[in-house]
Each structure stands twice: as structure tokens, then as C-alpha cells.
């Protein structure tokens, strides 16, 4: 017992030394790259957290100002009142539709957190020129879209304090832990179904939705 322990200890020491030499645990042990400066981080650090609005910058915007910016930068795709042009997404409507045959998830009917709207407009819109709006204009657009959805009154001013307090309609209807696996199929091998019960419930044959898969790219549009 005693002697085997004596041999064991030095091996542990060697392994530990090797580990730190290989840079497994110590921060900065490779030493590649540059430590990011606070100024560099500030320039890149654009994210805003949905639930509490952490990361929202200073600034503010009114519904009226939002209407002006929206008409100029957003309405062409999303429609003057958020109804969506063509297949571009609707930004309003669908309230109460989530259990329907054809639900309409929108900012008004589906989105759980208002600061997420600020974050998304800021990082991704307007689609042709993303991340070009001022913080004030993003606040104004957020106020305008929330107002279109009857989530805030006409005199609402969006800023880092007011946005996290906006109660979104669908906020409490998300489950943030994955309940899967939610099916428990057993791998039956023989006589698993009655032959008489095997029937086709739907077929893609003749639906004319499928683009061609030979020759040049298809340009088909649905009727």
C-alpha cells in the first residue's frame, strides 16, 4: 500500500505540470491575440437582453418620430401600418390567433419581450442597410411598432427604463426548457399495423408546389 502510493504521487505532479504547460487551464497561457480594450469592446458590444433590457443604450424616441422614420425606411416592405407587403413579414396583427388553424405570430401576438424588438431593429434592420440607425431612431421605431400593436399609448416614450416594463401579450406562454423526447415509439418489427389500416392521408403528387430538380433553377410562383 504505502510503497505504491509513493510511486503514484510523482506521476500526478508530472501530469499537472504538463497540463499547465499545454495551457489547459491558465488564462492567457497561449498569449495569442490582443487583450480587447474597453473602447474596442464598447464599439462591438451591441447586444440587448430581452428579459431585462440589459445593454439598452442611452437615448429615447417617441411614437410620432417613429412614424416618420418608419414611413421612410420600413413601410416599403412591412406596409404603412405593419400589414406587410407581399411575403414580407407583418409587424402587427394575429392577436388571439395562436391556437388557430393558421396562426399569425407577430410582435403583437407572439413576441415575449419588448427590448428584443429594439435589439433586432438595431442589429438587422432596415434590411438593405442593417445597423445604420441611431439609437434614438431605433427607440422611436420600437415605440411606433409597439403602438401599432396597441401595446403602448400614443404618448409613450421608449428608452432604456420604459422598454423593459412593457408587458407583451405572449410573455408567459413560453416554456424555456425542452420537453423532448415527447414521443415514445417502440421499434415493433412484425405485424405492427393491420394491413387494412394502412392508408395514405396526403400525397404531394399533383400539388404543383415542387420546383424542378433537373435543368436550370426554377422560378415557379404559386397560383
Amino acid at each position: 500500500m504505502y510503497s505504491s502510493r509513493k510511486i503514484y504521487l510523482p506521476i500526478v505532479a508530472i501530469v499537472l505540470a504538463g497540463g499547465s504547460l499545454a495551457g489547459a487551464a491558465e488564462p492567457g497561457s497561449f498569449g495569442y491575440g490582443r487583450v480587447a480594450t474597453p473602447a474596442q469592446i464598447a464599439g462591438w458590444d451591441i447586444d440587448v437582453r430581452g428579459e431585462d433590457g440589459a445593454g439598452l443604450p442611452p437615448g429615447k424616441g417617441t411614437v410620432d418620430r417613429g412614424a416618420d422614420v418608419y414611413a421612410e425606411q420600413c413601410a416599403a416592405c412591412h406596409g404603412t401600418f405593419g400589414e406587410g407587403e407581399g411575403r414580407f413579414p407583418k409587424l402587427v396583427g394575429g392577436v388571439g390567433s395562436l391556437r388557430d388553424e393558421r396562426p399569425e405570430p407577430t410582435v403583437g401576438s407572439y413576441w415575449p419581450f419588448a427590448p428584443t424588438l429594439w435589439d433586432y431593429i438595431n442589429r438587422a434592420m432596415p434590411m438593405p442597410a442593417p445597423h445604420t440607425l441611431s439609437a434614438d431612431d431605433v427607440y422611436a421605431l420600437t415605440a411606433y411598432i409597439l403602438n401599432l400593436n396597441d401595446l403602448v399609448p400614443q404618448e409613450f416614450v421608449a428608452d432604456r427604463n420604459s422598454l423593459p416594463k412593457v408587458k407583451m401579450r405572449n410573455r408567459d406562454n413560453f416554456i424555456w426548457t425542452d420537453p423532448r423526447p415527447d414521443t415514445m415509439a417502440k421499434p415493433c418489427m412484425n405485424d405492427c399495423v393491420n394491413a387494412a389500416d394502412v392508408s395514405i392521408s396526403s400525397t404531394a403528387e399533383g400539388r404543383n408546389l415542387t420546383p424542378r430538380t433537373t435543368g436550370p433553377l426554377d422560378t415557379m410562383q404559386p397560383k
Partner: peptide, 30 residues
């Protein structure tokens, strides 16, 4: 210390159930 709930994990990439609730953070490919 907390998730961000970005647009792509709230408005999109969430799974709407028949009872009107939605599942979020369903990352696994079954």
C-alpha cells in the same frame, strides 16, 4: 449569466404548440 432571448430565439426558432404555448431553446436535432 442569463440567456439573451434574441429575435431568433423568440419570434423564430420556437415551436408553437396546439394549446398556444411555445417551446423555446429547443436546440437538439432529434
Amino acid at each position: 449569466d442569463k440567456p439573451w432571448h434574441s429575435r431568433e430565439e423568440t419570434s423564430k426558432y420556437t415551436d408553437l404548440m396546439p394549446d398556444g404555448t411555445s417551446r423555446g431553446f429547443t436546440w437538439l436535432i432529434d
